[in-house]
Design a protein around this nucleic acid. Structure first.
Lengths: 204, 204
DNA sequence: GCGGTTCCATACCGATTGGTACACCATATG
DNA sequence: CATATGGTGTACCAATCGGTATGGAACCGC
């Protein structure tokens, strides 16, 4: 089983071999992934257009070509992309696959995705400041579906419904909290430790 | 025992009774508390000077009078203020008072401070985006002292040292995570529920 | 009364913000 | 070769950014 590459997805832009100027051509999928990384690191307000161009290598022309809606559209599409990735790699397995297997799969996926705590949750970042209000629907949807999917998996694994709800909520809370603390302390072991503790507490 | 008012501290500025214009006079303590609230809601990058003046009622003149170091100084002083408040109301009790009492006191203080999840942790907000690097020392200090103080209290309450460390870390993680999730879902019950769960798990 | 200090409001500064316009390049198709 | 298409770089825009300077009220000890 290999985990679909998204956080570190290799974007292989065409590079023109013109002697003088180096012109790099991206596709939209590349652009979304690159922009996502900037928002993740800098937050919505911190990710200014100039910093986005500088970190992604995409010029303003390209950015406004891919995202005619401007900065807000970039964030919205990035959010949708993250949600889609989680839907495919976390939520759907929890909802449909054999529950214990899906839960075990989740620990690995999450660990890989957050690069063991070195990267953080873009949705979590947007949740804290006033950005939350701008993307309230997407943010709420992401977390509610995650919790609901995990609760369902726990129920199918034999946990009583109400307890499953509490556990699922607690898991998401602790993942988010661990990301905050890992980052605050510059200590990735916090996230790994939390992940291990959670995995030990849930049905295997 | 009453909890020292900080988050909603009534700043009672002198109001001049000049006939024409209404001039409101603040003191530095008021300014810090007011500015803190803006940073808490908007994050460092989101809190622009104009939004700060608009929400606090303090003009630029006043702001740069109280904080000659500018925006960064405002954030630094606010961070120091929050840390000082926690030191006095949470950390020191955990370190010095009767442990079980101090822990019980912590639940109440925290619940009040975060207005049951409606307000969030300023230090947590700064931890997620690139603001973290600017105030790395203060942020790290805040969390390490919190965890260490709680661990010590747990040890003095009879918990074995290593387990106390794990528990203390887990508590801080879950408080931060609960703040993220309650804000993401616009649901304050998440925080209250988490607080109750944690209180039940720790020695009483 | 007076001068000094503290504090507030405003106008202003250069730099940067998000956004637009448009010419231009590279490739694929004809 | 021509040309349509998708992608890029750059110059430019009004608005706003963080920060400074200045002028003047309010209050203090005297």
């Amino acid at each position: 089983m290999t985990i679909p590459a998204f956080p570190n997805s290799d974007c292989k832009p065409h590079r023109s071999h013109r002697p003088g100027m180096a012109r790099t051509v991206f596709e939209k999928a590349d652009a979304v992934a690159l922009v996502a990384e900037v928002f993740r690191e800098l937050g919505y307000e911190g990710a200014t257009l100039s910093r986005i161009t500088e970190r992604t290598g995409l010029g303003k022309g390209s950015l406004y070509h891919f995202f005619p809606g401007g900065k807000e559209a970039m964030a919205a599409e990035v959010l949708a992309h993250v949600d889609g990735w989680f839907a495919a790699n976390v939520f759907r397995p929890l909802e449909q696959d054999e529950p214990r297997l899906a839960i075990a799969w989740m620990w690995n996926t999450i660990d890989e995705y957050f690069r063991s705590g070195r990267s953080i949750c873009l949705v979590g970042t947007f949740s804290l400041d006033a950005t939350r209000d701008r993307f309230a629907g997407a943010i709420r949807g992401y977390f509610t579906r995650w919790i609901a999917a995990l609760q369902q998996a726990l129920i199918r694994a034999g946990t009583e419904a109400e307890a499953a709800g509490r556990q699922a909520e607690a898991v998401v809370i602790q993942l988010q909290g661990a990301l905050v603390l890992s980052r605050a302390l510059h200590d990735e072991t916090v996230f790994a430790r939390t992940l291990r503790r959670l995995a030990a507490e849930l049905p295997r």
